[in-house]
Simulated scan of single mutants.
Amino acid sequence: MLEQRADRLWTHAESLRFAGVELGRIMTVIELSSGGLFVQSPAELTPALEAALDERGDVRFVAPASKLHGHLYMEQYATAYPDAELLAAPGLAARRPDLTFDHLLGDTPDPRWAPDIDQVAIVGHRWLTELAYFHRPSRTLVLGDVGFHIGSSSPLKTRLVARALRVYERVGPPVEFRLTIANAESFRRSIRDVLAWDFDRVIPGHGEIVETGGKRAVLEGFDWLR
């Protein structure tokens, strides 16, 4: 259920269909050096996944990428792990009034996970702010919808759509996201902050993980910002 990518870093891929197209979605799990698990973009908490998480530690934090990405199953984690804290991306509390959030995410990581994880709020889009995360020990960048990366292993229909959206074998957001950026300089500054991290691996919100060469992949995927 959980595929180990590095020391204290795992991923879990699950199916996600949008408008009839299989996009898939990736959950990232990080074991903090202080103990406990930081779960980003939580997947459906099946009995098998819950058992796999329990083998690796106590779930302490459950984080989305944005108000759209990575919140669908947070209520399951709140029930299964009552001591875990639910973290909110900007706008998520209004979107999910059924949940009680313990912390609002922004540019500054909480001291409880800051030794392992840095974060940047990617701003400048008309209606969406996304959190990018950097797992420092494994040099891994974790993205959401700002980081599609559809590759050759995807179904034919998905690959054709990805080409039209300009995210086939490229790390970045789909073209309609680019067209709805309201403040290009703020968005550009956010991506520069992400690129300042010393990452090599990239875990996208949808598609295939870039195991090495991730810095170059992000530079090339966002060359339209230049």
Rank of each mutant, 00 (worst) to 15 (best):
A65L: 14
S66G: 05
L68V: 12
G70W: 03
H71G: 08
E75H: 00
Q76K: 12
Y77L: 07
A80E: 06
A80V: 07
P82M: 06
P82F: 10
A84D: 05
A84P: 01
E85D: 10
L86W: 06
L86V: 10
L86G: 09
L86N: 07
L87E: 03
A88S: 15
P90F: 02
P90A: 14
L92P: 01
L92Q: 12
L92K: 04
R95N: 04
R96K: 15
T100H: 13
D102N: 06
H103A: 08
H103C: 12
L104A: 15
L104Y: 09
G106S: 07
T108F: 02
P109L: 14
P109F: 00
D110T: 08
P111H: 12
W113M: 01
A114S: 03
I117G: 02
D118Y: 03
Q119T: 01
A121M: 14
I122T: 14
V123P: 00
W127Q: 11
T129S: 14
A132H: 09
A132D: 06
F134Y: 15
P137K: 00
S138H: 09
S138K: 06
R139D: 00
L141C: 08
L141Y: 00
G147M: 12
G147K: 12
G147N: 09
F148L: 02
F148W: 10
H149P: 04
S152I: 10
S152W: 08
S153V: 14
S153L: 13
P155G: 12
T158W: 01
T158D: 06
T158V: 13
V161I: 08
A162L: 02
R163Y: 07
R163A: 11
A164T: 01
L165V: 02
Y168R: 06
V171M: 14
P173A: 14
P174Q: 13
P174V: 10
E176S: 08
F177R: 14
F177D: 05
L179W: 08
T180Y: 00
A182H: 07
N183I: 05
A184G: 02
A184M: 13
